[in-house]
Nucleic acid binder design. Structure first.
Length: 527
DNA sequence: TTGTGTTTTATTGCCTCC
DNA sequence: GGAGGCAATAAAACACAA
């Protein structure tokens, strides 16, 4: 009796602990989930099963996580929308949200949202054609999820934070993605891949499709004027147009499309608006991670005001609260792809130890103190004892889920890429130099040259930095082909998994660069 | 050390679609 | 009716400030 009750209580205890006590996902799990989520917002049951198996979670957990993740996205978008709404009123610049397609003011009711248009189309076709090719086109079954269309409110908003993040995670450079795909120097909309071509042709689709031609023209104008840079910091088109420099529609550069950084226009280069756009903190998670990455990852990075003439200003202006928010969001986003050198996949990124320590030792960031530390533990101290990480590592080497490869590849590439540089260079040049970072570095170098800013010169014109840039370009050039090849491999997620298994084993992560780097290089070289 | 705020996870109920 | 999804809610985990 007593024994049974004891047993029962024990069971209850266990049960409670098992069910009630929420268990934090490991960084590896989170990263995997994030990556997968970036690839498939609505995974099929099969995917979930695979994912659950891979991560050592239950399908229920996976489902729940995805559900919550979507909610989170939505929430973030909402915030973003609110912020944008405020900006809309003051900016007076064309805003997607003002197109009357169920704006934020219409609420974000999921049921009402997707009655107006198919956000899925907007999401996948227009902005992320590749995604369409991967998930939507090959997984038609996902169409049955009305939610995938999370509504008008989601259409544009989703395409901002979440989707950009997605691109980041996937190693798909949104900066290049958009202009390169939708806007060739000729103004045409070249398909990124055959599938995209089939789907989009040369007409505005998705997001742009729901816009009038006039707006499209305006958007195109902005694109042209800002070149690839218009996406560099800002959200996708239509999300935060107010970030554009005033007069964005007034004077177009001669060939802006080929002048991504507007280097020909020093005034524009020094435009505070541009800088503001570069540094403007946003509630967008993407920005959060993005800027946090810039501002807090490395003290050297802080000193170097890449991407912005006023990086320090940015930091100064950062509201403490905002920073806290940013930090708190970091654990999640930080593991996507924003910190290539410090991810939590020790098994995947061979040299994470050195780099990670270099990073983490510098900042008492939540990222590093929270999950980051956990990740570090896995990186250097735990001997990879973490079950999930270990499992993931093994799996990812051979198979890993769809979408992981990009991440891994990217990280590994960067890892490798970083390794090739002297440590001083690493620090001074901001190791995880992202696509835009490099691009911005180049731009900033010009700016600083122009301005004669000695400090900036020290930062950007040092030998290491310069060497690194050129080196990166060369390496990226080399890697471009690889990435493109991988790109074309994308098929159905499930099929892809299998295919990647084979591919992986054959070419265990080539020393190619991630998509964004490739894209960046591409644009950098092409422009 | 404690209180507070934020994020993440788990659960539940309702809705929509097939 | 079942499956899947969303929204609301509660609670745990965490970081930061006082």
């Amino acid at each position: 009796m007593e024994e049974s009750s004891e047993l029962q209580s024990e069971e209850n205890k266990v049960s409670n602990e098992k069910n009630k006590k929420r268990k934090l996902k490991t960084p590896a799990q989170l990263k995997a989930l994030e990556n997968f989520y970036n690839e498939h917002k609505y995974p099929t049951e099969e995917m979930k099963l695979v994912l659950a198996e891979e991560l050592g979670l239950t399908e229920k957990q996976i489902s729940g996580w995805f559900c919550h993740r979507r909610l989170k996205d939505k929430r973030l978008m909402k915030d973003e929308a609110v912020a944008n709404g405020r900006q809309d009123r003051s900016s007076g610049v064309i805003q997607d949200r003002g197109s009357g397609l169920g704006q934020d003011s219409c609420g974000s009711s999921k049921h009402a949202d997707h009655r107006y248009l198919d956000p899925k189309e907007v999401e996948s076709h227009g902005l992320y054609n590749h995604e369409l090719s991967v998930a939507d086109m090959t997984h038609g079954c996902r169409n049955r999820y009305p939610e995938n269309v999370s509504g008008v409110d989601d259409t544009s908003s989703e395409s901002s934070s979440f989707l950009q993040e997605r691109l980041f995670s996937q190693g798909l450079d949104p900066y290049d993605m958009e202009p390169s795909r939708h806007l060739t120097p000729n103004g045409a909309l070249p398909p990124l891949n055959p599938k995209g071509a089939v789907n989009m042709g040369h007409k505005p689709s998705g997001y742009l499709k729901v816009k009038g031609e006039i707006e499209h023209a305006a958007i195109t104008a902005v694109k042209k004027q800002l070149g690839r840079h218009y996406l560099e910091d800002g959200p996708l088109l239509g999300i935060e147009f107010d970030l554009l420099p005033p007069g964005a529609f007034e004077c177009q550069t001669a060939d802006p499309a080929n002048e991504p950084y507007s280097a020909t226009n020093p005034l524009l280069l020094n435009s505070p608006e541009i800088s503001a756009a570069k540094r403007q903190p946003s509630i967008s998670s993407r920005y959060d991670s993005y800027y946090t990455k810039f501002s807090s990852q490395d003290p050297h990075m802080e000193g170097a005001d890449f991407g912005s003439l006023h990086e320090t200003d940015f930091q100064d202006k950062q509201d403490k609260k905002a920073r806290q928010n940013i930090k708190q969001r970091q654990p999640l986003y930080g593991y996507t792809n924003h910190f290539p050198g410090r991810n939590s996949f020790p098994d995947l990124y061979e040299d994470s130890t050195g780099e990670a320590s270099a990073y983490n030792s510098t900042k008492s960031h939540r990222m590093s103190t929270k999950h980051g530390v956990e990740g570090m533990r896995s990186d250097s101290a735990s001997n990879h004892s973490d079950h999930y990480e270990e499992k993931l590592a093994v799996k990812q080497k051979g198979l890993m889920l769809h979408g992981y490869d990009n991440i891994n590849l990217k990280n590994m590439q960067r890892s490798e890429h970083v390794k090739s540089k002297p440590s001083s260079s690493i620090r001074n040049s901001r190791v995880p130099m992202d696509t835009e970072e490099r691009g911005l570095s180049a731009r900033m170098a010009k700016e600083e040259m122009f301005k004669g800013d000695r400090k900036a010169k020290n930062t950007y014109c040092n030998v290491d930095g310069a060497g690194m840039l050129s080196n990166e370009i060369m390496v990226a050039k080399r890697a471009k082909v690889d990435m493109l090849q991988q790109y074309n491999v994308k098929k159905s997620p499930v099929a892809e998994m299998e295919q990647r298994k084979i591919q992986r084993s054959a070419a265990d992560l080539p020393s190619s660069f991630s998509e964004d780097e490739t894209a960046d290089t591409n644009s950098s070289l092409d422009y």
